[in-house]
Design a protein around this nucleic acid. Structure first.
Length: 229
DNA sequence: GCCATTTCACGGCCCCAAAT
DNA sequence: ATTTGGGGCCGTGAAATGGC
């Protein structure tokens, strides 16, 4: 019967630093240090290790490294969807900054649905991500227990674009859509475009409630009737 | 046979000791 | 002083072991 050690040597297993070390007849420690370019390894050894590792198609196991370090160097991003221009642009910025700081990014979609968002949050916590960036789904605003669990786990949590109102202690990067809409309408009115300013209804202005409220507040403050609907 | 407990393996990093 | 080796550790799950 096959032993555990023999199973571990199955040919389908991916190449580890132990395999590279065995070929080079050095220790796994030496391979690890050579591949991470530490100073206390000779140039000749580094070159040999890299050559053999490349030839054996070695890929570092980030899970194992994170296990020892106690950090995964991975961030999770949960987006409602990947369509349109906004979220892909934000994701590009997140990945760029994460990469600059040595972090990987895991991206999931919530499909703008709280149940799906809960599953994605659980999966990212299980993957030991160090932080989660998320614009909460449209149906999450009244149901934030899964997000509170992220905080309780000591995992970083940053909202962007949309954030729940009743989750103290969380960080958020938000667009000021209320004041943006208010300022835009005020600018039109002061520029003499009173008709243009109240031509549309709030739902034509934006799907964002904040934006709609800013629009309506500006009309009210400048004593204009609200738009079509 | 079933259940609970213990042991082991996984991959890579860190620290200390030993060799040169 | 520099380079390398070896053991321990991390969290999890599978396998082995023991007791009933």
């Amino acid at each position: 019967m096959e032993t555990k050690a023999e199973k571990a040597k199955a040919p389908s297993r991916r190449t580890s630093i132990t395999d590279v070390a065995r070929v080079l007849q050095v220790s796994a420690s030496t391979v690890s240090r050579a591949l991470s370019d530490q100073q206390d390894i000779s140039k000749a050894t580094k070159a040999r290790v890299r050559q053999v590792a490349h030839a054996m198609n070695y890929q570092p196991n980030l899970v194992a490294a994170g296990l020892r370090r106690g950090q995964s160097k991975t961030l999770g991003v949960i987006l409602p969807h990947l369509s349109g221009a906004f979220y892909p642009t934000v994701l590009h910025g997140i990945e760029k900054m994460a990469s600059q700081h040595g972090y990987q990014v895991l991206v999931c979609q919530s499909h703008d649905e709280v149940r799906c968002e809960q599953r994605r949050v659980a999966a990212l916590l299980a993957a030991q991500v160090e932080g989660i960036l998320i614009p909460v789904s449209a149906t999450t605003l009244a149901e934030v227990n899964h997000l509170a669990q992220v905080q309780q786990a000591g995992t970083g949590l940053v909202f962007f674009d949309r954030a729940p109102a009743d989750l103290p202690g969380s960080a958020a990067v938000l667009l000021d859509t209320y004041n943006g809409a208010y300022e835009a309408v005020t600018h039109l009115i002061k520029g003499g475009s009173r008709r243009i300013a109240h031509f549309a209804g709030p739902q034509q202005v934006s799907t964002s409630r904040n934006c709609q409220e800013g629009y309506l507040a500006a009309l009210r403050d400048h004593q204009l009737p609200r738009g079509k609907n």
